[in-house]
Every structure is written in C-alpha cells, then in structure tokens.
Design a protein around this nucleic acid. Structure first.
Lengths: 212, 212
DNA sequence: TTTTTTACTACCCTAATGTGTAGTTTTACG
DNA sequence: CGTAAAACTACACATTAGGGTAGTAAAAAA
C-alpha cells in the first residue's frame, strides 16, 4: 500500500488529485494540505511513502519544504508538481531532494504512472525537463578552443582543487616547481582567472574537474 | 525522415538494431560501424540526426567518440547504449554530450521509442539511470549539521570562489579583514579544509555554492 | 545576574601564491 | 636541416593566505 501526502494550495487541483489517487486500489492518501506548515503539523510526513509537492506555495515554499520533509523522512519520495520551468525551480527542487518533476498539467493517469514509476526506483519527469537536466551535465566548452586544457593542465587543475601546494604537485607529477607554475599560468590564461579558487570554480562549471 | 548511425562492436547487436530500425518507415540507418574510427571516416556523422553509441568500444571509446561526433555535428542526438552502469560511464557519457543512456538489453521496440523520444526533445533513460542522475543533484549534507554554513559564511564562500581577496570581501560585506578571516576559519573547520581551493571544491560538491 | 558563546577586531609571522622576466631543451613542422 | 612553438627550469619580488594568539562587545544561556 503506497501512502501519499499531497501539498498543493490550489483547492481544485488538490481535490482532483486526491480523488483520482484514492480511486487506485494500491494507493491511500494520508493527507492533503494547502501548505507545508499544515503538512508538517499533521505528523504524517514520517509515515508516508510519497509526497506530491507544489513549488509555488504561500509561506514555506515547496523547495524549502522538500528539504524539511526529507529531514523528517529520508525515505519519502518527493515529486514536485509545478507550473514553473525555470532553472531555479527545477534545479532547486532536485537539490532539495525531489526524485521527480512534473508539470502541473499532468493528467490523473500520468500522475498515477509517475507515482508507480517513482516507487519502482525511477524518476518521473516530462521529456523536456529530462533533457534540461541532462543538458546541465554537458561540457559547454567544445567550441571555445581556448578553454580546452591539455591533459597535463587538467591533471594539475585537479591537484589544485585538492589544495595541494606547488611543491607537492611538482613531486607528484615529476616536474620542477617552476614547471608546475608554467602550466598554471596557461590554465589561468585559458580560463581567464588569476587564482586557484577561481580556477577551481570555473573548472567545476566547465566540468573540467573530474568526477561527480 | 530520421537518419541514424549505429556504432557498436558486437556484430550481433549491431545487425539486430540495424534490421529493427530499418523496418520503421520514418527511420533510415545511414551506417552501422564497429568502431568510432570507422564512423568518423565514413563522413556521414555530419548528416545524421541520431547516433546510437556503445561505450565499450575498442580504440576510441564511446565517451571520447561522443565528444568527437559532437564537434562535427552539434545537432546529432547521441544515445549511449551500454552494459555498464558505473558513475564514470554514466556521467562521463552525459558530460560528453549524450542525451540518453540505455542498457544494452533494450528491446527493439524500446529502442525505437527511445529514438522517437529523443527526437521529440526528451531524454531516454532507464528509470534506474534517471534516478541516479537526479540523485547526483541532491544535497548530501542534510544530516551533517557540522557542514551547515551560516548565511554569512555562505556569502563569504561564494566570494572566495570568485577569487576575491580578504580585503575586497571585507569591503563588500562591511567587515574588517580580520572579521572576514574569522568566518573563513569557521568555514574551513566546518568543511574540514585548509585552503580556498579546497573550500570551493567542497562547496561545489556539497552544493553550497550558488547557482547552476 | 552571571556565565558562556558568538561575532567580531587586532597583530604577528611564515609559507604559499601570482606574476614578471629570461634562459634552455624538446617537439613539431615546413 | 632549420626554425618556430611548446615545454620546461630558474630567479626575483610583492602580495596574499593561513594560522596562532589575544582582547572586546553583544547576545544567548544558565
């Protein structure tokens, strides 16, 4: 039995979803609230499996709410349902722990499918959102040849990110300290920065720095 | 008409996919190769819409290949098809420009659906991969209260990431230089680091640093 | 109210960083 | 082969960063 909580300030939508989901034999709607505050007060957060959460709520926003809910119940699967599709809404939601992101225009059937998918370990998203998410991973420096670091430069940048001193880096890659400096000069020039911290920051944004 | 290129070293799989896709009225397989090198030599990369790409290829790997293909044809939609599901394969593929990631066990029908989905602006992924991707966005410091920076600390960390000197930061937030240092000491302690670069690096990973 | 903690300010000192300039060796290329 | 670019090495120098220590005022806790 999948226990669901709905948090949505629009009465019409909230009621519609509640009705639709309640009709499913393996779903039970534990509660439907119009704000995160009410949902938190209910004490049911820790007992549910799935939380359907609107972003544009009065008081505590959906993004903040997701974080709070997750602190109470790490296991609960949070699915955001929003009319917004700006970066802040999407990525903010994902950061705060949502496992899915749907547009408010979802049909009841889609909503049911989404919940089932989430339970099965998937991440319900509209195709457009999925693409946005994946695109955020893409290196965006393919064109800018200036920003293409050599292998050695990339290695050094990673060591810089770990906070290693020039000396340590030099030892590690068998170069003189000034040899290391030589490459760092190029890195800074290519990335248009003047310090380690900026280089690391930019390196992350350009996805030059290894791993996730 | 959707023009497809297949790069897969397993003859059996390659032939099976080619046959299945060719049967679709709106698909045409421009070429099916057993290595990225062959695909690049064919000169057809720039003419296709979709590239199905294996990761574990001899010679140029799928990940490297994706990057090369994308340089030639930015518009081509690259869908990775792999038996691997480690972080390096998944996130490496996404970074190199893939818009989808499927498991090699896909059925012909799923493959056809995936291509159609990609064309429509979606991102074909198995539910498990999707969840992995979304999870990579989650803040993973909800528990570790030690790592929760105060607002001022977060502000300073962001300024540190921009490479600003203590002096500049001090001016910007109306504190003495030593006041700034005071907070930086706390930041370093909370993040368990000893330098700007490390702090920035960790700040990114913990998603403390602003924006995407 | 007293005590403790938090948020600063201040000073010192050493190591590390960023940058300029210059020389040498290796590699790539016509 | 000659030559230019790339890949180092070397030295100098001003600035910054990181960390130790200490003191003060305000806020929070006891």
């Amino acid at each position: 039995m999948i226990k669901i909580i709905i948090v949505e300030d629009n009465n019409f939508a909230r009621t519609a979803w509640e009705t639709a989901l309640s009709a499913e034999s393996n779903f039970v709607v534990l509660g439907a609230y119009s704000s995160c505050e009410e949902a938190l007060d209910s004490g049911l957060i820790k007992k549910c499996n799935v939380i359907l959460l609107d972003i544009g709520l009065p008081g505590i926003s959906g993004i903040e709410g997701a974080e709070l809910f997750r602190r109470i119940n790490e296991k609960a699967l949070i699915i955001m349902i929003s009319i917004k599709d700006d970066d802040k809404s999407i990525f903010g939601s994902l950061q705060s722990g949502a496992v899915g992101y749907l547009h408010k225009s979802v049909s009841p059937e889609e909503l049911i499918d989404a919940i089932n998918l989430a339970i099965k370990g998937g991440s319900p998203m509209t195709p457009q959102i999925a693409r946005r998410v994946l695109k955020s991973f893409h290196k965006y420096n393919l064109g800018h040849s200036e920003e293409n670091l050599t292998d050695k430069e990339t290695t050094i940048l990673n060591l810089l990110a770990e906070g290693k001193s020039y000396k340590k880096i030099a030892d590690e890659i068998f170069l003189s300290v000034d040899g290391v400096k030589y490459h760092i000069r190029s890195i800074y020039e290519k990335l248009h920065v003047h310090s380690r911290a900026e280089a690391v920051n930019k390196g992350q944004k350009l996805r030059i720095l290894s791993k996730w």
